[in-house]
Amino acid sequence: MKKLVFATIAAAISAPAAAAPETYVIDPRHTFPHFTVNHLGVANIYGRFNRTTGRLILDKAARTGTIEVVLETASIDTGDNERGERKRSRDEHLRSPDFFNAAEFPQMIYKGTATKWNDDTPVEIDGQLTLLGVTRPVRLTVDHFRCLPDPRVGGKREVCGGNATGTLRRSEFGMKFGIPGTSDEIRLLMQFEALRQ
């Protein structure tokens, strides 16, 4: 009987704590927002941002969650960062005012809220992307999401992560250079991991 009382009390104490929103800090070593852009109607070129920070706030019991991701635009990497026989590499050109204008807009920020859930897993995020000083809605579909005790530290902390995809039109953010040779539509492929604090 005593055990049952203790168990009930323990559950009563721990239940609110379990339902409270948990903060997860983005792990920059395992978070690389990728994108694809079509070049000349021929091939899809892949690129990514190498420096990302941010956080998730999740309350799986209440099925609420938010995400904030800050990407450093100067860290863009399309696999062409050596000049070779040219004056400038493609990545240097992408940092210029023709595209990301990294000197004036060093960051792009995505802030979203999980709006659709499948049990305790978010499947859709509605958010706002701020790029070149312009804020526009961008919806991400969460293709995969999982939380588990981090095996690298013996399960002492939780790690959550997954993959999300979405599309945007860069012209809506004022990035018009090179359209249509370099496509207006950009597909986002976001891989992210975050560590519980």
């Binding site: 005012p97 204008n101 004036e104 070149l132 312009v134 004022g174 018009k176 250079f177």
Partner: peptide, 13 residues
């Protein structure tokens, strides 16, 4: 033709 006549946000360009 290059940028359009949009002035928000008011960037350097």
């Amino acid at each position: 033709f290059i940028n359009g006549f949009s002035f928000t946000p008011l960037t350097a360009t």
